[in-house]
Deep mutational scan, measured.
Amino acid sequence: SEHYTFDGEEQAIRFMRDMEAKNLKYELQIHNGKYIIQVD
Rank of each mutant, 00 (worst) to 15 (best):
Y26F: 11
D40G: 12
E9P: 11
L28H: 02
Y26W: 08
Q11T: 06
Y26L: 05
Y4G: 01
G33V: 01
R17P: 00
E2G: 13
K22H: 09
I30S: 03
A12F: 06
I13A: 09
F6P: 01
A21P: 02
I30M: 08
E2C: 15
V39H: 03
H3Y: 15
R17K: 12
I37A: 02
F15Y: 03
I37K: 00
I30H: 05
Y26S: 04
F15M: 04
Q29P: 00
I13E: 09
E9L: 14
S1A: 12
G8D: 15
N23Q: 10
E9A: 10
S1Q: 12
G8P: 01
E2K: 14
E9T: 05
H31M: 12
I37W: 01
I37E: 00
H3K: 13
T5Q: 08
N32Y: 06
L24A: 06
Y35P: 00
M16T: 02
A12P: 00
I36H: 11
G8V: 14
I30T: 05
A12R: 02
R14F: 06
I30E: 04
F6S: 01
A12L: 05
M16Q: 02
Q38R: 15
M16Y: 02
M19E: 02
Y4N: 02
G33N: 06
L24M: 11
L24P: 01
I36D: 03
E2V: 14
A12W: 05
N23M: 08
E9D: 04
Q29A: 09
I30V: 10
R17F: 07
E2D: 11
Q11W: 07
D18W: 15
I37N: 00
D7L: 08
Q38S: 14
I37Q: 00
I30P: 02
K22Y: 07
G8R: 13
M19F: 04
I36P: 00
I13Y: 12
Y4T: 03
K22R: 11
F6N: 00
E10I: 06
A21S: 10
I36W: 07
H31C: 14
E9K: 09
K25W: 09
K22G: 05
A12T: 02
Y35R: 00
H3G: 07
M19W: 03
D18L: 14
Q11A: 14
F15E: 01
R14N: 10
D18T: 08
M16D: 00
